[in-house]
Design a protein around this nucleic acid. Structure first.
Length: 998
RNA sequence: GCCGAAGUGGUGGAAUUGGUAUACACGCACGACUCAAAAUCGUGUGCUUCACAGCAUGAGGGUUCGAGUCCCUCCUUCGGCACCA
């Protein structure tokens, strides 16, 4: 008998398969397609451990099975290689990340190849290939153009150890997910993608997906939708009210009111019902002061007017004020990027037509006409130098607001970028506090309002608050706390009342106090809540500070009501309304919609949905990532790079260490950073932040469909054929981040017509972990890592594959057990022995024939359901049976090899060849089972008495009910148990049992 | 706290969805072969009991002729979310 030498056999077939191209994807249009995908790996320096290939083996089995079933199968593999892990590894080992990545990919690939996975390597790519990330950048630009990308000035999560900003998704319990360092809040402008625009669709579309429930649930939790209402609490302060107020917007040179920051500002003011005038100023390209002044006169400013001027429009306002009569006043003047004197050198030649004098402005005269000046200025404004802003502010005693990166407040600025401006004009309106609540039913007991310490109104109300110092101290203290401390659940509630500020409860009309407390989160809802007796946190806080409460929800039980009524207990559940005017007696649920409607009619409430999901902070201040293809122009603001110039290649440099300044290392590479503005041709700087690690992996599955296309992300015809991914297999750890980002990215591509389906992955299956023999996670740290190379060397790839699939249910995590592998090895060897003991070639006994056909049936079904462990056990039973019977026909043994081939491709292929075949098994058809062998003629009929098994009798499979009952009752063993008792009932289940009740 | 998944021999795990609980494999014990060992093959292996039989699927209750499977209460483990209004 020939020895089973796995090394020789496996090597031989690996080479044959590779050179024959049998793994290449076929695309005949008349065949059905099947796209099966693994979550591509992030190649690390450590290499693979035995846990990694588990999922790959499973997809390989399905891919082979589907191919044998006649499908065009797409089964690709590639590499996710940008991001921090590779960069940190590179820094530590002093190799360039590009080199380290190449090396790691090579290691991974060698390891993967030993397992003989049937990937079509022609479609391989890495997210770090410029040909690939060209399209990552392209998609980003499309998002930018669709206004899905904005500049945020909110404080971001900063990891002081990784020296980069992080998205919400990159945190674990308030610490950096990578290094465990508690994150800090850092104020720095950031590119952010409006993923929240897609929250609702991402949530709703989960229902149509064939995904595991736990993954869907994770997604739902992450999105965190809650339905409720936004309710307005008006501030009781007559001074802040004004009915005849008006805003006048004066634009600058070379522009008009529809440009610059006016469109959003106008829209915002319309929304807030603030009347405004924005005249089209005459001869904007060569303005004359007298024309502009008379136009400003025409707008008829009054003492309730707020004047806003941009650039030379601001100059006009100041010149106009200089000339006003003694007792005239306006309410407020806001100067944005406004000159003190002439502009820079370039403009000295301009005919200023009365705009500038060498003496500057007559500040004393101007100040008589307004008590409230605000100057907005950016330090990088190349048209109006910083000294102008400072001089103006100083001369006017203005509130000077300094920015760092707004340039000349150019045309692409978005409203998020000048929140200060909005705050300023919001001061003209009736001030109200908007709160979000899911419990409108408790509004009648709303006893006070709580703001987050960062709430914008705290600043606006500053002057009205009589205990300003105390409030300031509380805010300072809150800001010093880390995110972990801020959000600890069982932390004691603290707060400070904003004295002299009260609001009106819109339901009761009562005046109630306003507090700030750090348990209210600025970033959720509106950053403000109303507090009452029906929320545990509010309840505790009210008790602590003796804030009077009332109750409005009555529990069903009287005993509970007694306690609730006397404030001995906080009742948070739904109940029946009390103390709620006309709504008394309603259930909470009824009351919620009715009260919302009632308040909405009075314009004091509207239905609202809030999400936990936050926008995607998209910039990383690190080297190893896709450069963000945006250009900062001094004159034009932020300008997208022309698409035809993509990819914007990451410069190859020697030094790429992160900086401490919050600036990307790319900022130090002058020859890369300095560029021309694509719009005006002037000097400009590139954006220096790079994209987060998750960008490249958000759409890679589309690129496999058409990996070499350099004119489109993917060819629409090919996309239509192969999309969506039919089966996606990977780790549960990607339940939130990767799958959220990829679904979002895909939906965006769907919206702009690049893809034809609105969801990328039709079916998703997670892989269970393989834990080490000691029960811990496999890790270098514990020294318990098992390398697949060693296992394959000793046992062979066929045994390795079979064992990993036999270990347990595919999605369960199971501990590795090298001893257990012996069973799989024995099974593989048994197949070999069956052939070499000459059992093959004769007749197949009938009983064996039945086992065979049942097994063919079961293995097919089990593969479809990913129940590999039972598929293998069925084949073990079959091989045990063949050994017992010692005879099987050539054809039947061939069928066995075919169904085993997806699991153990080498040995089955070798034996197939030994039997005289020249074809590849993977190109054979999947065997068809014969119905007639699936059923037995005789079956074992179980006889139960009072539910207990008392006898088993052999009967014909199609035995009639009466015959079966008769036989059962006649059984001697059964007689023993029914003797002397009365038979009350006899139940017959076809093919199974007879149950006798006595 | 909310939501989700799961709990079966010494071990990994089966069980056609309400119908013989413990398939298959590991381990262990005994036997065959061998001078011996390994490998291989065979037999046995939930617990109690000489046996008859009884008891066993995290615990307790329920529905049913019959429950690992369905319902209720609770415990434990894992995963997601969490001062989210």
């Amino acid at each position: 008998m020939e020895l089973y030498e796995h090394k020789k056999i496996e090597q031989k077939w690996r080479e044959k398969w590779e050179t024959s191209g049998v793994y290449k994807t076929t695309e005949d249009a008349d065949k059905e397609k099947f796209y099966i995908l693994d979550m591509f790996p992030y190649p690390s320096g450590v290499g693979l451990h035995v846990g990694h290939p588990k999922g790959y083996i499973a997809t390989d089995i399905i891919a082979r099975y589907k191919k044998m079933k006649g499908f065009n199968v797409l089964h690709p593999m590639g590499w996710d290689a940008f991001g921090l892990p590779a960069e940190q590894y590179a820094l530590k080992n002093k190799v360039h990340p590009r080199v380290a990545t190449q090396e790691n990919i090579a290691t991974f690939k060698t390891q993967i190849e030993k397992i003989s996975l049937n990937y079509d390597w022609d479609r391989e790519f890495s997210t770090t290939d410029p040909d690939y990330y060209k399209w990552t950048q392209w998609t980003f630009l499309q998002m930018f153009k669709k206004d899905l990308v904005y500049r945020s000035h909110e404080p971001i999560n900063w990891c002081p150890s990784c020296k980069t900003g992080l998205a919400n998704e990159d945190l674990e319990d308030g610490a950096c997910e990578r290094c465990g360092t508690p994150i800090e809040k850092k104020k720095m402008p950031q590119w952010v993608i409006k993923i929240t625009d897609y929250a609702d669709r991402m949530l709703a579309d989960l229902d149509g997906l064939d995904w595991q429930e736990n993954i869907k649930q994770s997604q739902r939790n992450w999105i965190g939708r809650s339905e409720g209402a936004e309710i307005e609490f008006r501030i009781k302060n007559e001074e802040l009210k004004s009915t005849s107020q008006k805003v006048i917007l004066m634009h600058g040179k070379d522009t008009d009111p529809s440009q610059k920051w006016y469109p959003w500002l106008a829209a915002e003011m319309q929304k807030k019902k603030i009347p405004f005038v924005a005249p089209v100023l005459l001869h904007a390209d060569d303005p004359h002061m007298d024309e502009w002044l008379s136009q400003l006169d025409d707008t008829k400013p009054t003492e309730d007017t707020i004047l806003i001027g941009h650039s030379r429009g601001g100059v006009a306002i100041l010149r106009w004020l200089e000339k006003q009569p003694e007792n005239f006043k306006v309410k407020k003047v806001i100067l944005v990027a406004t000159n003190y004197a002439k502009c820079d050198e370039k403009h000295t030649k301009d005919n200023t037509h009365g705009f500038y004098t060498d003496a500057g402005y007559d500040f004393e005269a101007i100040k008589k006409h307004c008590d409230d000046f605000v100057v907005l200025h950016s330090t990088d404004d190349k048209w109006v130098s910083f000294s102008h802003g400072e001089t103006n502010a100083h001369g006017l005693d203005a509130n000077f607001i300094k920015f760092n990166d707004r340039g000349h407040f150019g045309s692409t600025l978005k409203k998020q970028e000048i929140p200060a401006l909005l705050d300023l004009i919001s001061g003209v309106q009736d001030i109200s506090i908007k709160v979000f609540t899911t419990r409108v039913d408790t509004i009648f007991s709303g006893a006070f309002v709580i703001l987050a310490p960062e709430h914008e109104l705290v600043e606006i109300l500053k002057e009205k608050i009589s205990n300003g110092t105390e409030v300031e101290e509380y805010i300072q203290a809150a800001q010093k706390k880390t995110e972990i401390d801020r959000t600890a659940v069982d932390k004691e509630k603290t707060g400070v009342e904003l004295k002299s500020v009260t609001v009106i409860n819109p339901a009761t009309g009562q005046e109630i106090p306003v507090w700030i407390s750090d348990f209210v989160l600025a970033y959720y809802g509106t950053g403000a809540v109303f507090a009452d007796a029906h929320d545990a946190r509010d309840f505790v806080m009210a008790k602590k500070y003796n804030i009077p409460l009332t109750v409005s929800i009555r529990p069903k039980s009287d005993a509970a009501w007694e306690k609730v009524k006397n404030f001995e207990e906080c009742y948070e559940e739904d109940g029946i309304l009390v103390n709620s005017g006309d709504f008394d007696g309603l259930t909470s649920e009824e009351a919620r919609s009715k009260i919302t409607q009632w308040l909405a009619q009075k314009d004091l409430a509207e239905e609202k949905t809030s999400y936990r999901l936050r926008d995607w902070v998209f910039g990383r201040q690190r080297y190893w990532g896709e450069p963000i293809p945006l250009i900062h122009c001094e004159k034009c603001g932020v300008v997208p790079m022309p698409e035809e110039e993509l990819p914007l290649v990451l410069p190859d440099v020697e030094h790429y260490e992160p900086t401490d300044t919050g600036e990307s290392p790319l900022a130090g590479i002058d020859e890369w950073v300095n560029t021309e503005c694509p719009q005006c041709g002037g000097s400009a700087r590139r954006e220096t932040d790079t994209m987060p690690q998750w960008a490249g992996s958000s759409w890679y599955y589309l690129r496999y469909i058409d990996p070499k296309n350099d004119t489109a992300l993917v060819d629409p015809q090919k996309e239509k054929y192969w999309s969506p991914v039919d089966f996606y297999v990977g780790g549960e750890e990607h339940a939130t981040r990767h799958l959220i980002y990829a679904r979002f990215w895909h939906k965006f591509l769907f919206d702009i017509g690049v893809v034809s389906h609105d969801e990328p992955f039709a079916k998703l299956q997670t892989v269970g972990l393989i834990i080490a023999e000691d029960g811990r996670k496999m890790s270098k740290r514990w020294g318990n890592v098992i390398n697949p190379d060693d296992v394959i060397e000793r046992f062979g790839a066929d045994t390795f594959r079979t064992y990993e699939m036999f270990m347990g249910p595919f999605d369960a995590s199971v501990a590795w057990n090298t001893e257990g592998m012996i069973g799989s090895r024995k099974f593989i060897e048994r197949i070999w022995k069956i052939y070499y003991r000459d059992y093959v070639g004769g007749e197949t006994p009938n009983a064996l024939k039945k086992t065979l056909h049942k097994t063919i049936n079961k293995v097919g079904d089990d593969i479809e359901e990913m129940k590999y462990n039972t598929a293998i056990s069925a084949m073990m039973i079959l091989s045990n049976d063949i050994e017992k019977q010692k005879s099987i026909s050539t054809e039947d043994f061939g069928a066995f090899l075919k169904i085993l081939c997806p699991f153990a491709p080498h040995i089955t292929q070798e034996l197939w060849e030994q039997m005289g075949n020249t074809s590849f098994l993977i190109e054979e058809n999947w065997p068809v089972y014969d119905e007639k062998y699936l059923s037995d003629d005789e079956i074992e009929l179980v006889v139960q008495v009072n539910g207990k098994v008392r006898d088993k009798i052999m009967v014909a499979a199609d035995i009639a009910e009466d015959d079966a009952k008769e036989k059962a009752l006649a059984s001697k063993k059964v007689q023993k148990f029914i003797d002397g008792k009365k038979v009350r009932k006899v139940i017959f289940v076809q093919g199974k049992l007879v149950s006798i009740v006595v």
